[in-house]
Amino acid sequence: MSVPTEYLLGLAAILFGIGIAGFLTRRNLIVVLMSIELMLNAANLSLVAGARMHSTQRLLDGAGPDLQGPVLAIFVIAVAAVEAAVGLALIIALYRRKQTVSLESVSELRD
């Protein structure tokens, strides 16, 4: 694939913007969690784009590919899975208390 790096980064920016829009506007907690996953995916995509660009330079110099990007992306995926598990457990606990998953129902700390 000879797609330039900026296209990958642009796709990451668009996905991140969509994730922020869902995170800020939706009231359903599960959809909010999904928007966070979208944003983490966009961050991973930008890591991949940067690693690919640096790998190209390093391969031209005769060195091996750059591994910092993929390693960090794998750690991000692990942390994202952890975040989804904890968030969904919190949602289940909240549903048990209030029989709803709406963000409107957990506004006690706001007042």
Binding site: A13, F16, G17, I18, I20, A21, L24, T25
Partner: peptide
């Protein structure tokens, strides 16, 4: 929210 998202993107 939509404005913030559009601004960040």
């Amino acid at each position: 929210g939509l404005g913030v998202a559009a601004a960040v993107g």
